[in-house]
Nucleic acid binder design. Sequence first.
DNA 1: ACTATTTTTTAGATTTGTCTAAATATTAAT
DNA 2: ATTAATATTTAGACAAATCTAAAAAATAGT
Lengths: 219, 219
Amino acid sequence: MNLSVSEENYIKSIYHLQQQSEIVTTNLLANEIQTRPASVTDMLKKLHTKKLLEYEKYKGFRLNATGNKIALSIVRRHRLWEYFLVTKLGFEWDKVHDIAEELEHVSSIELIEKLDAFLNYPQADPHGDPIPDVNGKITVIKQLSIADVQVKRNVIVSSVSNQSPEMLELLKHYHIGIGTELKVNMRLSFDRSVEIKVSKYAACVISEQVAKNIFVHHD
Amino acid sequence: MNLSVSEENYIKSIYHLQQQSEIVTTNLLANEIQTRPASVTDMLKKLHTKKLLEYEKYKGFRLNATGNKIALSIVRRHRLWEYFLVTKLGFEWDKVHDIAEELEHVSSIELIEKLDAFLNYPQADPHGDPIPDVNGKITVIKQLSIADVQVKRNVIVSSVSNQSPEMLELLKHYHIGIGTELKVNMRLSFDRSVEIKVSKYAACVISEQVAKNIFVHHD
DNA sequence: ACTATTTTTTAGATTTGTCTAAATATTAAT
DNA sequence: ATTAATATTTAGACAAATCTAAAAAATAGT
């Protein structure tokens, strides 16, 4: 199936909206994609003709099996590129979305498989979202957050699930990024805040709320 | 300047044709880009309006300074991506052109600068073509071919300037690829053919014609 | 120098993806 | 159960990039 960039963007957006509500509406999608409802209707007809979604006029729509598989392959490409941009090129993980948005439409299947191998088959992107495998299967790995990690164990930051500027500022301040090695010195039982030690820097304390957003893995 | 993929492709093709003949003609470009002369004329008007080329009806055309700079930035992107695909993802260097053709249109400047740094500022792509720097400057590095290299010195293959299937077959047969380490055992003065030793394989002899197409650098 | 051939351009149509404005269907409110 | 409000679709227009067929300009052959 040969899809245009536009078609791929619609499919991806429908997929994302479906994660929240089983059925998607024209206005919701128009808002998501920053376009007019009339344009959405046009594209829906096209995707319906291509048999990528179930669609009845005025009654909403949803991806069928084929559409879903395509959506997953786009999500896969997007997340692999995000992972590449952060871990290999050194981008901040709040800056990679737009670039990955372009890269995800490069169509070579071989490219993505080789990229996946080069990155050593990562399971989640820098935001902690799982990366579907070649067959579109998503392994929902139970992510280990700093809030759960054993004290005195060395861990490596693998992703951060909160993209707010405030969170980013905090992480910058404590020198925490993807790939950063750190140790939990102690956990205070009163509020479950944790004291962590980031490489050579002085130990610092982060709240449970923050700890829950930082995912790590053992080295 | 915000250019469409199509506009970028025209500019790149005009640039390439200009390397061979100072002035480019409509039919030449139509052939290069696999389109109709009428389409070329349409695009020429557009690029002329955008002040990227000198163009007089029926008299041919050529990129002006602005157009040239843009062309060089596209060439830069293309060659950096080719280098990435071969050296990092392990593609054969005869397979990367089409993929780089897509990647080169991803527009982030920061992406290319970070990619360049990640690749350690390569000077030539896997075909031996020089990579323009950020300012569009091309450093024509005098490439060292196997035909020129001193005997008994270890060298590493950096690029191959002949992309024919025959050449590729030959190189595969002798286990030569980008990054391969080899040594010139001897050079026969009769026909300047050279005996080379590729890592653990038995020594083999290649003609001067072949040797001239394989560029190397000292380790 | 004149005609024939080739090259280039114009005119007008087509496709893709978008838009506005109007029409139609659905849902909510009394 | 009507009417009002909202959501969705249709109809028709538009821009970008392409095309075909025909016209115009340049070049080549004798």
